[in-house]
């Protein structure tokens, strides 16, 4: 594939991702915010495709564009109607310096770091590599994460049990 094509695709996807991420915090309607969030996630998935990380891209769509918004939608639908718009909140002021500091850190890192250039092509097959890595090198974190999720699920069930 042409380099120019990749560049155009990258900038389009980046604009989509960042633009919809901005819209998530800008729009007042929470459901609209969720829709923009999905768009943003789809943009990230596109960037994964560009990096020829096909498994990650599809997993991104499956989990972040498909499943996470559903949870958010449930959360919105289960809250009383009064809280369904992105109202002004007094926490905005203290959040501002925090976000500013975070942004400054990210920008400075991006500028200061000496980014290495990729010297090889894309992977032929990522799925089996990821699978093997998860079950050999990173088996401990993988298991810890699954136990954590199980505990969280049990906790949620116990919280809402009526008896």
């Amino acid at each position: 594939m042409d380099d120019s094509g990749s560049v155009v695709a990258f900038w389009t996807l980046a604009a989509l991702t960042v633009g919809s991420a901005l819209m998530v915090v800008a729009v007042r309607n929470l459901v609209h915010a969720v829709v923009y969030l999905i768009l943003s996630f789809v943009g990230v998935a596109g960037i994964f495709v560009l990096l020829s990380a096909d498994f990650l891209a599809v997993a991104q769509v499956l989990i972040y564009a498909g499943a996470i918004p559903v949870l958010i939608i449930f959360a919105i639908m289960l809250t009383p109607r009064a809280a369904r718009d992105n109202a002004e909140t007094s926490l905005g002021l203290p959040a501002l310096p925090l976000v500013g500091a975070l942004l400054a850190t990210i920008i400075s890192i991006a500028v200061v770091t000496d980014w290495p250039e990729a010297t090889r092509g894309g992977f032929e097959e990522t799925t089996s590599v990821i699978g093997e890595a998860l079950l050999s090198t990173y088996v401990l974190p993988f298991e810890i994460a699954s136990v954590l999720l199980l505990a969280a699920m049990l906790g949620a069930i116990i919280l809402v049990r009526e008896d």
Partner: peptide, 22 residues
């Protein structure tokens, strides 16, 4: 013919949920 065709099919199916909800 994607390497991750099966996963792709499932992922696309999950997008459907959001559209129906919209």
């Amino acid at each position: 013919d994607l390497n991750v065709g099966v996963l792709f099919v499932i992922a696309i199916g999950s997008i459907n949920t959001i559209v129906v909800f919209m």
